[in-house]
């Protein structure tokens, strides 16, 4: 079974700072990591490969330095890595990104065999849109399961897959035909550590590097800034909230006691409020 995993190299958000004066995001010197959600997708793909055989191809679109994330993925155990890089891709929003990635997945299929599954993370930590996975699925006409918490079963003979999907209010068990695209939730598996041989291979492997043309993308007007209708109007740092919220325990308690508790908490936070209310109630 051939599986494609789309990954993105993102700045480590834990280390990003906002310039105190200009409010711009200071990216300089911030280390990059593989988008954490994508790692769960990669691990899930590797597990399926280990069970059913086949190959895992990782794909990323990004600047040449995104090579680092691909080497890391190879070091974790992926079989092949494709870097999609071209100045035409610069400034892509989710529409343009899913366009380019979908084309690349198509090309990967032509070159190494149709993938039965395409994985992405649930979303990226630097964009938070969760749109690219569904965008790829739509363009390639794949069935899609988003927010997947686990893969229950893959039936190769019948060409079906069954997953657990987190939804509001519960977990759904869903089945569909392959090929399909899956966006993976966090915490769904434990990411493996590659062996010494894996990391050596990752460090040395020849990456497949495609520009737009090599990936079979004829229409570069759908790529990058030109293919991106989204406009960033302003970037600003949100105001920090004044104080931390207080939580009131509700489990196994009557509404009356919860309400009393709440009122006590509010009074404790705002000294003088109780007296004011009392005075008002007394008619002054």
């Amino acid at each position: 079974m051939h599986i494609v995993v789309c990954i993105k190299q993102v700045p480590d958000s834990a280390q990003i700072r906002v310039h105190p004066v200009t409010n711009t995001i200071m990216r300089q010197g911030v280390p990059t990591i593989i988008n954490p959600y994508d790692l769960f997708a990669l691990e899930e793909a590797l597990r399926l490969r280990d069970t059913f055989g086949g190959e895992v191809t990782v794909l990323t679109m990004g600047p040449p330095m995104a090579e680092e994330s691909l080497r890391k993925a190879l070091g974790i155990g992926a079989d092949r890595a494709v870097l999609l890089t071209d100045r035409f891709f610069a400034g892509s929003d989710t529409l343009a990104t899913s366009f380019a990635l979908a084309q690349a997945v198509r090309k990967i299929g032509e070159t190494w065999g149709e993938p039965k599954l395409v994985f992405t993370g649930k979303q990226t930590i630097d964009g938070d849109t969760a749109q690219v996975g569904p965008g790829i699925a739509r363009r390639l006409g794949l069935q899609q399961f988003t927010y997947v918490a686990g893969i229950q079963d893959v039936n190769e003979a019948a060409g079906t897959i069954t997953v657990l999907r987190r939804a509001e209010g519960g977990v759904q068990e869903l089945s569909t035909q392959l090929p399909a695209l899956i966006t993976m939730l966090e915490g769904t598996n434990e990411i493996r550590r590659g062996s010494i041989a894996d990391v050596l291979r990752g460090a040395r492997a020849e990456l497949v590097t495609w520009n737009a043309q090599a990936a079979g993308i004829a229409d570069v007007t759908s790529c990058g800034l030109r293919g991106s209708p989204t406009v960033v109007k302003r970037v600003f740092a949100p105001k920090t909230r004044a104080a931390k919220a207080t939580q009131v325990e509700v489990k196994d308690r009557t509404p009356e006691t919860i309400a009393e508790d709440l009122i006590d908490q509010i009074y404790a936070r705002q000294p003088g409020l109780e007296d004011d209310l009392m005075r008002m109630a007394a008619g002054y």
Partner: peptide
């Protein structure tokens, strides 16, 4: 020897 499996280098 390292903390990765796969023996010494």
């Amino acid at each position: 020897l390292t903390d990765r499996h796969g023996g010494p280098v």
